[in-house]
Nucleic acid binder design. Structure first.
Lengths: 145, 145
DNA sequence: TCAATATATATGCAACTGCATATAATTGGT
DNA sequence: ACCAATTATATGCAGTTGCATATATATTGA
């Protein structure tokens, strides 16, 4: 026999959905208003920029991001079409490639961060103190595997 | 000049995304494993079941749920095709209709809740105490308009 | 060495979403 | 009563996703 979740648990779940929805709404609205690429491009570009010229294999990116294998494959195809990343042949493994950010890619990432950081402030920073954010992070961390 | 978000704010944002992703992953996996309709159907059925025979106008449902107008319109079309809801003509407003849950709809909602409630336990209840859930809810409530 | 298995990535298809706009009915002002 | 503006809902289209599977290369064990 399975235990029913307490009201507290259910409400936490409900507010997790609501909060994520609201916060993501702010961020996406500001991205669109800024005429920027979709939100999902940011994380890819940022992970790649941190590796600079070396880049990352696709499966490494996959580990770092919240995206499926095929989702990433197609996401990269789109970002590549916009010339913000390149898929370079990979000498040590013929199946894959190294994905690297381009110079325009770095440029747009910086531009996106301008908007993104402000959006995070709108969605979170203006609503919670640093102390509360720290507390929130600690609680949420328990929900992540 | 715009203020940069503090590290605490950024980390709270990051963990909001991660936690939502992980928690939703658990729920969707369990729904799929149970051969149940998509997750999004649940809230619709539940809101309607609470109104029983009276039902709700589409715009009322829209206010209660986290879904766009056209998203809801098509969601209802799909749920209606499965015969879990009906769109009845509306005497007092010829533009719309009353949406009501059917008997099979109530049946499947109950079945979905069996799985859903367990999934919420897996995603949240097994990971946070009631006190922590309460705290989490309070913090997240600040992020919702 | 070679077949079996595992890994890295891509893709056809169907379902779902956003955006803009369409359609239809209601309301308000004159 | 009439027309403009507003409200309720639907839909064409293009873009995005999940699922299952395909393709290609690498690795392992006999």
């Amino acid at each position: 026999m399975n235990k029913k979740p307490s009201d507290e648990v259910v409400m936490a779940w409900v507010y997790l959905l609501k909060a994520q929805n609201a916060a993501m709404g702010h961020v996406e609205a500001m991205f669109k208003k800024g005429g920027l690429p979709p939100f999902s491009w940011y994380d890819v570009l940022w992970e790649l920029e941190k590796e600079d010229a070396v880049g990352l294999r696709q499966f490494q990116l996959e580990e770092r991001l919240l995206v499926s294998q095929y989702g990433l494959s197609r996401l990269l195809t789109r970002i590549e079409k916009a010339e913000y990343v390149e898929r370079l042949p990979c000498s040590e493994d013929g199946r894959g490639h190294r994905v690297v950010i381009t110079r325009p890619g770095k440029k747009i990432r910086a531009k996106m961060w301008e908007v993104y950081s402000q959006a995070i402030n709108t969605a979170v920073g203006d609503r919670l103190s640093d102390k509360q954010c720290e507390q929130l992070k600690r609680l949420l961390a328990n929900l992540v595997d």
